[in-house]
């Protein structure tokens, strides 16, 4: 860079008006920017000229109506709101910067970007995330899963469940049947059947790592042991498919997507991320269908009637009754019972 004090100018007359800052003091000085024939930049401040080679001076990329800056090495800069003027002097902007600016400037490209984003998000939630969460869940060692299951058990025991009040005989009979079911599976899980009481009503749940819990009410609701075995098979299906882990990964995946799209984790976006969590309920229902499939398959291959599963599911739905049907299907974690099972009148069930 050179500094001259001549007031003659050999560059063209189409200068760009702006301010010059010398990086020494916070004093703005009116200045005119032009370009020499050899391509170097030239700033006229009063009767002084500051020049800089095109390779030394950095021109900021165009961004909305933000003022353009030419940054000299050492921090001095020329600043102008005349974006078109700078583009004219530049001749050709760097290709990528010009492309991004063109995308950002028009509403058509903005709306196209929005549509592409919506489509990509939908594809990701529909196909990418379930596949990804399955892969991730399968990577988790059995030991870690078992540890997670133990902690969940501690939590439900404190918060939800009481000790079982079932007859010792009943428990022993069902435990033997359960052990018979699981010993042949040989899938690396240490299965354990637990009986619990409490206000949860007729229910059963599978915890990661192989713990299966049935409530006293469910055992009492069953009219045949095979009905209970059908439910246990459904829960074993959850364990084998690592559904708890997959559900966890998928749910956090949807929230993570919202955070990525909205850019940060402010108060507002944190609330907005709750909405997409509802989408995840659809996948939860897919996992239920998968477990249903395992239960039916198991009943078939062990010479039991599939109708045992239907009967039990229908009776469960009837016993919990109104609460379930009042919930709109998109908010429920289980598919509606008439889709999962063929219900028949009680007198046909034996």
């Amino acid at each position: 860079m050179s500094l001259t004090s001549t007031s003659t100018s050999d560059s063209d007359q189409t200068g760009v008006v702006g301010s010059w800052f010398d990086a020494q003091r916070s004093t703005p000085r009116p200045a005119i920017l032009s370009r020499e024939t050899d391509g170097s930049w030239r700033v006229t401040v009063g009767d002084e000229h500051i020049t800089g080679a095109a390779s030394d001076v950095q021109v900021t990329d165009r961004l909305g109506t933000v003022p353009r800056r030419l940054r000299w090495p050492g921090g001095a800069e020329f600043d102008t709101p005349d974006n078109d003027g700078i583009d004219r002097l530049l001749g050709r902007s760097p290709a990528v910067a010009a492309f991004v600016d063109r995308l950002e400037r028009g509403w058509t490209t903005a709306l196209a970007s929005l549509l592409i984003l919506v489509a990509l998000s939908a594809l990701f939630i529909e196909y990418g995330l379930p596949a990804l969460s399955r892969q991730i869940a399968m990577l988790v060692p059995h030991r870690v899963e078992a540890g997670l299951g133990t902690r969940v058990l501690e939590w439900v025991d404190t918060m939800l469940l009481d000790d079982s009040s079932l007859e010792q005989d009943t428990r022993a009979r069902l435990t033997t049947a359960f052990d018979g079911m699981t010993s042949s599976l040989d899938d690396g899980y240490a299965y354990r059947l637990l009986f619990r009481g409490g206000a949860l009503g007729p229910n059963a749940m599978a915890l990661p790592g192989g713990i299966v819990i049935v409530t006293d009410d469910l055992v009492k609701l069953a009219r045949h042991d095979e009905e209970i075995l059908a439910v246990l098979a459904h829960e074993i299906g959850h364990v084998r498919g690592r559904h708890t882990l997959r559900h966890l990964v998928q749910a956090s995946g949807v929230s993570a997507l919202a955070v990525v799209l909205l850019g940060d984790l402010s108060q507002i976006t944190a609330l907005a991320t709750a909405a997409p969590a509802l989408l995840e309920m659809r996948h939860a229902r897919d996992l239920e269908r998968e477990a249903d499939g395992f239960a039916r398959e198991w009943l078939r291959t062990h010479g039991m009637a599939e109708s045992r599963f239907d009967d039990m599911l229908c009776r469960l739905a009837a016993s919990t009754g109104g609460a379930d049907s009042a919930m709109p299907s998109f908010m429920s974690s289980h598919p509606p019972v008439d889709e999962r099972a063929a219900c028949r009148p009680a007198e046909d069930q034996r």
Binding site: L63, G64, T65, V100, L103, E104, R105, G106, W107, T109, A110, S113, L114, I116, L117, L120, V260, L261, G263
Partner: peptide, 24 residues
């Protein structure tokens, strides 16, 4: 402050799309 919502929307949505397409 001279920023405008509509202008920033266009910048934001394009940048989000480019970030997604380049895997972050």
């Amino acid at each position: 402050f001279h920023g405008r919502g509509g202008e920033y929307f266009r910048i934001w949505i394009v940048n989000v799309l480019l970030s997604v397409l380049t895997l972050g």
